[in-house]
Computed example of a mutant assay.
Amino acid sequence: MNTADRLVAAAANLLDEGGDAAVTLRGVATATGVSHNAPYKHFASRDDLLAGVATADFLAIAQAWKQIRASVSEPTARLLSALDVVIRFSQEHSARHRLLFGSPDIAARGGPLTDAANAALRVFAEIVEDCQAADELPASPSGTLAIVIFATLHGLIDADASGRLRSESGWADIGSGMRLLIGLLHNR
């Protein structure tokens, strides 16, 4: 692993351990055992480093989705598995999830981050297309349907993170909400 990758991994760990405020270039340098100036040789700013974390995470999610898409499971099962990847990520890495999907300043940096995010979302749209081809989801523009499904997922993730998903309110958990949505779309 090269120094830039080590810095990105250290920043990801700091995000996991202490949230956004825990990530500083000095803290990342200390965590990787490099000089305090070394991060600046690879990242012009803290935001560039955070964009590196987001890029790596989008690439990892895309890889997980590609493996799911290549599996022998039924298309709807693959879609639910793809959604579970994001649910688990949001629960295990909440600060990094917010970085990926709730940081417009980081998203606006473009470049490799935009490429990685678009590539990941293309794989997700292909999983949705597979469901449509199997007549398990309605025939509609697949990109639009993928966005609606993904937006619903993130709405439930946000509701869960804020404590609004409770069984007494009718929302037991994120996964059951997504299974309900996919089931309704399937039975249209």
Rank of each mutant, 00 (worst) to 15 (best):
R96A: 07
F58G: 08
R122I: 04
G33H: 07
A117H: 10
D115Y: 06
L145N: 08
A119S: 13
V53Y: 03
H93L: 09
L79N: 07
K66Y: 05
S90H: 09
L25P: 01
L180N: 11
Q91C: 03
Y40E: 12
D130S: 12
L121K: 14
L83V: 10
T24K: 09
L145C: 06
D173F: 06
V8R: 04
G111W: 09
S169A: 15
G163P: 05
T144L: 15
G111E: 02
N187I: 13
D84N: 13
E129V: 14
D47L: 09
L14F: 02
A44D: 14
H36I: 15
A161N: 12
S73P: 10
P141C: 05
I157P: 04
A12C: 04
T55F: 03
A146V: 00
H97S: 10
S167Q: 04
D48G: 11
R122F: 03
A12F: 01
V148M: 12
L15E: 03
R6A: 09
H42P: 11
S140D: 11
R188C: 07
H186M: 04
G143V: 00
A107Y: 06
L184H: 15
H186C: 08
F124E: 03
G143K: 08
D16H: 03
D84G: 08
P112G: 04
S35Q: 02
V128N: 05
F43G: 02
L137Y: 03
S73N: 14
L49I: 08
S103T: 12
Q91H: 13
